Simulated scan of single mutants.
Amino acid sequence: MTADAKPRPGDVVAAVARSVARTARLLLQGRLTAPRTLAGTVLRDADGGGSTVFRETRAAGRGTDTVLLVVAFRLRWVGSSRWAHAVFRTSCVVNTPLFAGFPGFVSKLWLTDRSSGVYRGLYEWAGASAADAYAQRLGQVLRLVTVPGSVSYAVLEGVGRADVVAGRVRLPGLGAPPSPRGGAAPRPHA
């Protein structure tokens, strides 16, 4: 499959099924954790706003040479309902098997910008091509539950998660290319 090709629905279902099986193995081996050290941390974005970390997922012993994958979206049907967003944030942990078993997954920070209703996933991924392949599959799944046109992602090479947490690199805005503040120039994907 070329980098510009979209995965077929059957390929997406098969990839998710493999991820669920691998996630089960990670859980059984005690290699999937949910650290709380960054919960409540606000990460700045290119639009001048900020997203708050509300959960972290980490796979132990995976990847040392990583890229960042930033996925952004707005949920459909929840609008500005505070309780609906609270339910989503609480229940989204059940989505862990949909990503943690994909090849190359290292970690994910779950982010929300309550003022704009934008959710983000800040992933560490072993390899840009693996991150891009996952993002294309995720995009197809997210489009079922998001505001049309609100799903975007960027793969950032040469930038570490610590750069974003420290504020040296800002998160890409929804639908916008990433905005580095120092560090290597990112490679955007749409």
Results as ranks from 00 to 15, higher is better:
151 V>C: 04
42 V>H: 14
89 R>W: 02
108 K>V: 04
121 G>Q: 03
6 K>A: 04
36 R>M: 04
155 V>P: 01
124 E>L: 05
29 Q>I: 03
138 L>V: 08
176 A>W: 03
126 A>W: 00
115 S>H: 05
92 C>T: 15
39 A>D: 12
39 A>G: 14
134 Y>P: 02
23 T>G: 11
68 L>K: 07
36 R>I: 02
139 G>F: 02
177 P>E: 10
133 A>E: 14
19 S>C: 13
162 A>Q: 08
52 T>V: 15
13 V>T: 11
188 P>N: 10
141 V>N: 10
41 T>A: 05
96 T>E: 14
70 V>I: 12
89 R>A: 03
23 T>I: 06
54 F>S: 14
175 G>A: 03
147 V>K: 01
37 T>V: 13
72 A>Q: 10
95 N>G: 11
132 D>G: 11
25 R>F: 02
137 R>N: 15
23 T>P: 04
77 W>S: 11
146 T>L: 01
23 T>H: 09
7 P>H: 13
19 S>P: 13
128 A>F: 12
54 F>N: 09
138 L>I: 09
22 R>H: 10
75 L>W: 11
185 A>V: 11
145 V>Q: 06
72 A>P: 01
65 D>H: 02
85 H>W: 13
137 R>M: 14
30 G>N: 05
17 A>K: 11
113 D>M: 00
140 Q>I: 03
36 R>C: 01
141 V>G: 08
132 D>N: 15
133 A>R: 11
169 V>C: 06
116 S>L: 04
85 H>C: 11
185 A>D: 11
155 V>W: 02
56 E>S: 10
115 S>Q: 05
108 K>M: 04
36 R>A: 03
179 S>G: 10
138 L>T: 07
122 L>N: 06
66 T>Q: 06
27 L>H: 08
129 S>M: 09
74 R>A: 03
160 G>I: 10
58 R>H: 15
75 L>G: 12
179 S>I: 05
167 G>P: 00
97 P>S: 13
21 A>F: 06
